[in-house]
Simulated scan of single mutants.
Amino acid sequence: MKKNQLGKSSLFISELGLGGMSLGTDWKKATAIVDEAIDLGVNYIDTADLYDFGENESIIGQAIQGKRDQLIIGTKAGNRFEKGKDGWEWDPSKAHIKQAVKESLARLNLDYIDLYQLHGGTIDDPIDETIAAFEELKKEGSIREYGISSIRPNVIKEYVERSSIVSVMMQYSLLDRRPEEYFSYLQENGISVITRGSLAKGILSDRTLKSVDAAKDGYLSYSTKELAQLKDILMQNYASAHSMNGLAFNYCLSHKPVASVISGASSIEQIRQNVQAVKNESLTEKEVDNLARIAKQDSYSQHRV
């Protein structure tokens, strides 16, 4: 599978990354999915300390034993929680991040994390303190690079201007094109985009709309009727050459700043389908332009200043 450079770093990650959140807590099943993904060429696995309150990191840590040299591992921090207690609270302080990385390293059974990401963020955070924590972790060797996971334009701008992030993880899909407004800006600053939600909660998958809960009340600015109309157009014009997954993933990957699309998998068959879609269903420039013409181009209305 093709690998793309993450920002200006020495990290090269597969165009499809495996998102840990969908693996569940059946250790045997999750390990089998991780093994299959690696065998199929996926080298980037993305998790977070918050997923299943740390258990997801532990599962991945076990699943990757003996394969560390093949992989780029990303996780996230910023949500303070106590295992066994409901809920969590936002804490981007240096003290919390430096403690959280120790706990993630222990659960993952790693000496270092390749990509450590701030799991959210607001403009009211102590941003300089947060950046200082990540920079210190780099110098100490606990992490190789760091990034943020955020869709807030004002937060992204602050980190681009004040830190050495290599990536921004953003919700991005054919149904949510808001991030495109910032692609040129990120590319000019040598920062990659890692996408999540590229199947729009299953709306852009091969499943029927009736079987997707997220489609029942519309999606973002799309009404239920508009979703049905768009899905019909996609099926009529592209189904002979592409799967819906292929259209969704490769539309995202056709944009230069996008290094990888992250997708979860709850079965071996699902990871096989996702890999097949990314590896064998690339889009032509004309197809990408046509898709952009039939999908809405919305922009962020909040968190701009």
Results as ranks from 00 to 15, higher is better:
G19S: 04
M21L: 14
K28M: 05
K29M: 02
K29D: 10
A30H: 01
A37K: 02
G41N: 12
N43C: 12
Y44D: 01
I45W: 05
L50T: 12
Y51I: 07
Y51G: 02
Y51K: 05
D52Q: 14
D52T: 03
N56A: 10
S58I: 01
I60H: 11
I60N: 11
Q62T: 06
Q62M: 07
A63K: 05
A63C: 08
I64F: 07
G66V: 04
G66D: 11
K67I: 05
K67E: 08
L71F: 09
I72M: 08
G78V: 11
G78Y: 04
N79F: 15
N79Y: 13
R80F: 07
F81P: 10
F81L: 09
F81V: 06
E82M: 03
K83D: 03
G84Q: 10
D86W: 07
W90K: 15
H96Y: 15
V101Q: 10
A106Y: 05
N109D: 14
L110Q: 11
L110K: 08
D111G: 10
D111L: 13
D111T: 13
Y112F: 14
Y112K: 13
I113V: 15
D114L: 08
L115G: 04
Y116N: 00
Y116Q: 03
Q117I: 12
Q117N: 02
Q117T: 03
L118Y: 02
G120E: 11
T122I: 04
I123L: 14
D125P: 11
P126I: 00
I127S: 02
D128T: 06
E129I: 05
T130K: 07
T130P: 06
I131P: 12
F134P: 04
K138L: 03
K138E: 14
K139F: 01
K139N: 14
G141E: 09
G141T: 08
I143P: 05
R144E: 09
R144F: 08
R152L: 06
R152I: 00
P153G: 09
